[in-house]
Structures are given as structure tokens and as C-alpha cells.
Write a protein that binds this DNA or RNA. Structure first.
Lengths: 134, 134
DNA sequence: CCGGATCCCCGTTGATACTG
DNA sequence: CAGTATCAACGGGGATCCGG
């Protein structure tokens, strides 16, 4: 594709245009489809390693069994996650990132880095906001 | 902060650990607070430039006035967006990215690039999924 | 008139129970 | 174990109302 973007060469303006243009549509599409944050969390949790349904459930705190199922279905439909069911008793189903799915790790990391780095700022801002604002 | 990560030096495993560890909590916190995709979209749309409420509303297709208001409130509380109300008739309210808010553009761009680059893959995957799967 | 608060309706989510 | 079914609760969208 023609989006071989040399990030460091982009101006801030070009970046934001990218997001507001096709990137915006694409982002919206992807996030709309996937259910936003769960996608990133599932993809990150799954990383290169095959994992069973229950293990995913345990490793992603706060996700409900229902939503994990739905998210995994979406990701499967998106071609980001592969699903393998074994005809055993008790049943065993394993999920794994596809090659395309693995490429999502990079953006997820970037977001994670940002979140870690700026979390203190944000919490401080909350304190200030809640104190004065009421 | 100590998270000056040289991304290229991280193994895939280290990356995913980052996400699943503090990054995961931080990401979840940030996304939970902000309302996920809208945050990225608003931040990107706002970029370095002050903008009025209505203009934001027009520039972000598909967002409701209600959700834009809420998202902006969250972003303000997070300290990512500044709000200025002018005592005029008709009223005018302008929003702008704070310095911290501006740092979110980079991760947003990374996600946008990913979305643009892999959208075709995803759409193709949908076709395949929907065709065979029913 | 603009920004946004409120109200109502509906889709999505979560908790729980049940099944292959 | 890995889901599906069901129902209640919550959150979002849209129309409407309102303060400045």
C-alpha cells in the first residue's frame, strides 16, 4: 500500500490530517468493529502465544465472559485472531494471533507507553479538577 | 519518567509484557475514563488548533452532540484539553489541546497508520468470514 | 443563536443459569 | 471447559428545552 509513512518525517499537521482523513475513517471502522479497548487488551494478552479461552478470561481483569466471546469473534472475523477447537472432553479451544494480528502489537505498545508515561499527569489533573470543580 | 523505551530494542515478548503489566492498567484506565475511540478522534481533530464546539461536531462524523460534550469533559478532566468560554452573544466556546494532550497525537497516528495499512486485509477477512461462515 | 443539559428510547453489556 | 440463552441494568443516540 502507499502508506509507507516515515513517521519522523511527518509534520504534526500532516499527522493530524492523516488521522482526520482516511485514518480517521479507518480508525473509526476498526474501533467500531472491534469494541475498542478490548481489542487492544485481547491482542496484547494473546501476544505471540496460543491461549485458551479461560486463561484469557483470567488474564484480562474486568472483562466478562460474554464480551470476551464477542470480542474474540470480532477479532476472528477481522482476521486478527485464529481459533482452534479440539474435539476433546472436556473441550479445548485455543486462540492465537495471526500474522496480521501480531502487527497490532506495535500500536498497542505505543499507546501503552503513552498511558504509562502520562498516567501521573492525568491523575494529578483529576485531583485538581475534582477539587476545584466540585 | 523511567519509561524511555527504545522501542526497536524491545523484544515482542517485552512489548506484550509492557501492555499486560502497568501499561495494561494504564491503558485500561485511560480508555475506560475517556471513552476509547472518541478520545483519539477528538484529540486528532483538535490537533494544535483551537476549535469551537460546533466545528468539532461537524468535523467528527458520527459523534453525537451529547457524546462530544461528555468526551470533552473527560478530556478536560484528564488535562488533555483546555476549554475557554467567551461571555458573548451568541456564546462561543473554544477547545484546544494542552501540551500533554498534544503528546497523544503520536500514538493516535501510530494507530491510524495501522488502521489504514490493514483495513484492506480486514475487509477481505470479513468477506471470507461472512461467505463461508454464513 | 450557540453550547449543553435533560428526557426518552433502544442497543449493548453484565450476571446468571444452562448446555454440548 | 467453552460457550449460548435470558433478563436486568447501563450507556449512548436523538429530540427537546434552556441559560447566556
Amino acid at each position: 500500500m502507499s502508506v509507507t509513512v516515515t513517521r519522523s518525517a511527518m509534520s504534526e499537521y500532516e499527522k493530524t490530517c492523516l488521522i482526520r482523513g482516511d485514518g480517521g475513517r479507518a480508525i473509526r471502522g476498526v474501533l467500531d468493529r472491534n469494541g475498542d479497548k478490548r481489542t487492544l487488551l485481547v491482542v496484547a494478552t494473546l501476544h505471540g502465544e496460543r491461549m485458551r479461552f479461560t486463561e484469557l478470561l483470567h488474564r484480562i481483569p474486568g472483562i466478562s465472559q460474554r464480551m470476551l466471546t464477542l470480542t474474540l469473534r470480532h477479532l476472528e472475523r477481522d482476521g486478527l485472531v485464529g481459533r482452534t477447537a479440539y474435539a476433546e472432553v472436556p473441550p479445548r479451544v485455543e486462540y492465537e494471533l495471526t500474522p496480521v494480528g501480531r502487527t497490532l502489537i506495535e500500536p498497542a505498545v505505543t499507546l501503552a507507553e503513552w498511558a504509562i508515561e502520562h498516567n501521573p499527569d492525568i491523575e494529578r489533573s483529576h485531583q485538581a479538577y475534582d477539587t476545584r470543580g466540585g
